[in-house]
Design a protein around this nucleic acid. Structure first.
Lengths: 192, 192
DNA sequence: ATTATTATGGAACGATCGTTCCATAATGAG
DNA sequence: CTCATTATGGAACGATCGTTCCATAATAAT
């Protein structure tokens, strides 16, 4: 009945997400985003919305990916808890393409106090769910009478904080290999 | 011989620093900055320079404060190494005024890949000096035959990463008290 | 009092910002 | 083929961006 759209919505959101990830919300102009996405203004405003709506879509996409990652690892009942956390870390610091970008949620929280208000609930909820993933693992280890040097909740908090710090270190240019090895050492320390 | 300047340079840099700290480089407009600083355009461009120069001045000021803090604590030969690190952490998460702002260097690294290039060297150098402060403490503990569960360099790396993560958690709105208590637990774990 | 010098405040610049709007292109339905 | 409908691309909008410039104010030296 009508002209079919030429662009792949999944694809242009991914392109925009990558650009926001690298340059932040304020550092990304509509013009630059359109260039990356390969569409024109009318297309964007007609089918996605304004810059805020686009950013929200990108952050949602990103958080879904993040959620998927820790769900498939930290909450994988097939594996013993230590192995799950190890796998989570390995997969978290695997991709060399996006290594220097850190984490979109972390970057957004650090960018501007104003923008955070709307985004805070989404980012915080994903991050606290991830922390709960760690908590589940540590709790399980305690239940299985494995020795733990700290309480599960404190250990999970430390892991969650270390992850955010690691994302900052990625922005500094530290290699995934270095970050991962340091992180695994901490995990071993906490689960020894 | 000439008209004396009305403003206190230290003061207006502090005001600008605080604004950048909260809203980032891209999120701070000259107009807003001038309002916070209480000076007009001519004054800024005449005695400080453009936005980049102003930001650099602010970051330098910030990094000097950061340097002073860890020099006075981590490198204080008067105190045993554990006490030094404890004091560093306590002072790092003391100020409730700026608690929700995190760290200007961390925020800047997370903001935009482009802006980082010039700033990276300063921020990275301060951060690596701070990590070396931790390293000195852990090394000293080993020299004094105190038991350490990890190598000093790895322990220092973990502490440095945890600090960056803690700065992100401040942006999330987590209280200094919570962050500090978690952090001290980690320190105890590493120095047990 | 006059002059030289610097600080100040604000007008004004071109560039870019995000957004709106519309003529045109391209398709499926009738 | 015709028409209704949606996608597309780009012109154009007002607002704001960072910056430059200059008339004026205010002081110290003469």
């Amino acid at each position: 009945m009508a002209r079919p759209q030429k662009f792949d919505e999944q694809e242009i959101i991914s392109k925009a997400m990558l650009y926001f990830w690298e340059h932040g919300f304020s550092g990304s102009s509509i013009q630059q985003l359109l260039g990356e996405m390969g569409v024109s203004r009318g297309t964007l405003y007609g089918s996605v919305g304004d810059k805020d709506a686009l950013f929200k879509r990108c952050l949602q996409r990103y958080s879904e990916m993040a959620r998927q990652l820790f769900t498939m690892t930290l909450l994988n009942a097939q594996l013993p808890p230590y192995q799950r956390m190890l796998q989570f870390l390995q997969l978290s610091f695997l991709d060399s393409e996006t290594a220097h970008l850190g984490c979109l949620m972390v970057n957004t929280l650090c960018e501007d106090e104003r923008a955070v208000l709307e985004v805070k609930s989404l980012a915080s909820s994903v991050m606290s769910d991830m922390e709960n993933g760690f908590l589940t693992c540590f709790q399980e280890m305690v239940d299985q009478k494995q020795s733990l040097t700290l309480s599960p909740s404190v250990a999970a908090g430390i892991m969650a904080t270390q992850l955010k710090g690691a994302r900052v270190r990625q922005r500094e240019g530290v290699s995934n290999q270095t970050i991962l090895s340091e992180f695994v050492t901490l995990l071993n320390q906490l689960t020894q």
